[in-house]
Amino acid sequence: MAELPQKHRVSVSGVLKILGVSRSGYRAWKQRVPSVSEKHRDHIKDAIKQIYDGSHQNYGAPKITEMLHRQGESIAEKTVGNYMRQMGIKAQWVKPYTVTTIDSDFNSELQNILDEQFNPSRPDAVWVSDITYIWTYNGFVYLTSIMDLYSRKIIAWVLSQSLEAIHVVECVNKAKQMRNVTSPLVFHSDRGIQFVSQAFQKVTEGMINSYSKKAYPWDNACIESFHSLLKREWLNRFKIFDYKH
């Protein structure tokens, strides 16, 4: 049996000589106490990691900075971003795309009553709605949501396997039942064919229908931002089976 090679021990003196470091300098380095700024930096990095892990790796520098401010830390977003790069962590971001708006072709007749006034003075004064897609192993499904613009709360939602208007109607009926709405309110959406159908007009009778300008998502920014956040931070990060399975 062949003999195993002997392990060679490397002396500290030899390494210091190769590195050009004096023994006294090495001893001083070993005995050095971390400075206050170094301790604070390590403390901040630990806090960043805790917030990041607590968000399931979703939060980036802006949100982590906000959370640190809530904890009483005074730190700039740029510094948080630099620390995150040093730590090798970043917010998750997945952004696939598919079309969910089927243009209704009633551009001249549909009016934007809301006009980007996103802060109504009372609940149930303005509802906004949008349809987004969700990828699953069995193909796309579609999420229709209705938000009360006063509280930014989702008051009704429906999952479907098609973009038929009947699913928007179902969502509107759920919202009406949830809020027991009797007085007229503004209902804002994009110009998708689902939102101009006869069935939609009937279910929103007594409401004031408002529509975003064509190819201008900022008119319905609140609920579109919600759907974007929902997918970016949760749905697009996981492989999802069809919701009926």
Rank of each mutant, 00 (worst) to 15 (best):
M1F: 15
M1D: 13
P5H: 12
P5D: 09
P5M: 06
Q6M: 15
H8P: 02
R9I: 05
K17F: 07
I18C: 07
S24K: 05
S24H: 05
R27D: 15
R27Y: 15
K30G: 09
K30S: 12
R32F: 03
P34M: 11
V36Q: 09
S37W: 15
S37M: 12
E38D: 14
I51H: 09
I51N: 01
Y52F: 15
G54R: 07
S55M: 06
S55K: 05
S55E: 10
Q57G: 02
N58A: 15
Y59R: 03
P62D: 15
K63N: 07
E66D: 11
R70E: 15
R70L: 14
R70I: 08
E73D: 13
E73T: 06
I75Y: 08
E77F: 05
T79M: 08
V80H: 04
Y83E: 13
M84R: 09
Q86K: 09
M87T: 06
M87I: 09
G88V: 05
A91L: 08
T98L: 10
T98M: 08
V99I: 14
T100Q: 01
D105I: 01
F106A: 08
F106H: 14
L110W: 01
L110I: 14
N112E: 11
D115E: 15
E116W: 02
Q117L: 06
D124S: 14
W127S: 02
D130Y: 13
I131F: 04
I134M: 10
W135Q: 15
N138C: 09
N138G: 14
Y142T: 02
L149K: 00
L149V: 02
I155C: 02
S160H: 05
T182N: 13
S183M: 15
S183G: 08
P184E: 11
S189M: 08
G192L: 03
F195N: 07
V196S: 06
V196Q: 00
A199V: 07
A199Q: 15
F200A: 06
K202T: 12
K202W: 07
E205G: 00
Y211H: 10
Y211M: 13
S212W: 03
A215G: 04
W218R: 10
D219R: 03
N220D: 07
C222S: 10
C222T: 10
C222F: 02
F226T: 04
F226P: 00
H227L: 04
L229K: 13
L230C: 05
R232Q: 14
R232G: 07
F238R: 09
H245E: 12
